[in-house]
Simulated scan of single mutants.
Amino acid sequence: MAGKLTAAQGTGVLLVTANVGSLFEDPENLQKTWLREFYQVSVHTYKPHFLAVHCQEVGGKNYEASMSHVDSFVKELLSSDAMKEYNRARVYLDENYKSQEHFTALGSFYFIHESLKSIHQFDFKAKKFKKVVGKETYSETLESTPSLEKEKFPQDYFPEVGGILSTICLFLRYIFLYCIKDVQRTLRFQRFQDFKFKHETGSLVSLCSTATMHTIRVADTNEVDKLIFRESDNDRKVVLQLEKKLFNYVNQDVFRENNGTPLLEYDKELSVFKDRLHELEISFPPSYPYSEDSSQGKQYMNTRCPAWCDRILLSVSARDLVLKPENEEKSIIYDNIGPNVCMGDHKPVFLSFRIAAGAGKPNANKHKCCVVQ
């Protein structure tokens, strides 16, 4: 177990983003491994005072069949011996899959270590902070839960747009517009989730710069059906084949060597928001799409081009808080969980840092809502 924590040297914070859909498709195998690796990072290695886990695809892809496994997953997190020093918790689960208008399949878990003595949470209905005590779980009635605000994109929000980049830009613009409705929302926030970032596949074709591309079209519509890249010699070996839901590249090691970071030049979505969003330097391999075979911890599936889909982004003010001069750089870690074992089709990604005592308090020229509560 982790040693006793003290907040005297600052508050340790750990943020985790995890697409957990695979866990509920194969709970017997994947869930146990996932939890073991999660405990190793969250409790034994970094020992945070405050732990926040943001999950996507809670309940798996087949919600009606798999949602029953969610309760056991939550009970394990709340009652495990590994988490016993976290005596306060808040869990928010969107399990109401029958309401497609509101359903998001998101889940948020917040754990507070016993060494933090006075923790308050904002009540949006009462418009004041209330003391956090005990462990509470909320589900199905999230729209009426006073301790959070839930928003889902309007179903008609996205027009027909060209490609994933445009969709992500619209998504982030929506977030910014929602935040600035109220200045008290805007000053410090983190977005940690599976953003579905994908590389520009056209740019990645440079992996096959010496190969010849062959285009196969659908006879009736003349639409492109697949692209095949063959070497000019070597018996015209196929180097890359692209189809809908297929990215079959001859050498997956390119995504693992040097953690695949030479390919980050093709990861361009965030450049549009470089003045408003900050991300620490990525030094881990693409987080998706890994094989869901429990014996293939490092193998990627051939369904998509491997990419850094799971990210933790900071607003400018949150970045300044994390990167305070008194925070030693070595104490800020941005990495993935379970690099050598199967964690499902996504590797969880985490950000660990410390907040110095008194950090975030306002001065005469700042809004009072800058206070870290």
Rank of each mutant, 00 (worst) to 15 (best):
E101H: 07
L187R: 06
K268C: 00
D194F: 09
G358P: 01
V183P: 10
E25S: 15
K127W: 01
A357W: 07
T104S: 12
V372L: 13
G60K: 01
R88E: 02
R36N: 13
V91E: 01
P306K: 01
N62C: 10
F73H: 05
K128P: 04
E160W: 04
R311S: 00
S68A: 12
S232W: 02
N258W: 08
K196C: 11
L51N: 02
I164E: 02
P306S: 03
T141M: 07
N19C: 03
L323G: 05
L93F: 01
P48Y: 02
T186F: 15
S287R: 07
A357L: 11
W308T: 02
V272N: 08
E326Q: 15
K196Y: 08
C55F: 15
D235Y: 14
H69F: 14
K127Y: 01
S80Y: 10
I164V: 11
S315N: 03
Q56F: 08
I180G: 03
R188T: 08
G59M: 02
S72L: 12
E265G: 06
Q40C: 11
Q40I: 06
V372K: 07
N336K: 12
N365D: 12
F111K: 02
I119D: 06
A82Q: 13
L23R: 10
L35D: 05
F103M: 02
N29M: 10
Y157H: 10
P48C: 05
N365K: 13
T261S: 08
L106G: 06
S203C: 06
N62W: 11
K361W: 08
Q31C: 15
D345Y: 04
G21P: 04
L170W: 05
L142A: 01
S99Q: 15
A307G: 03
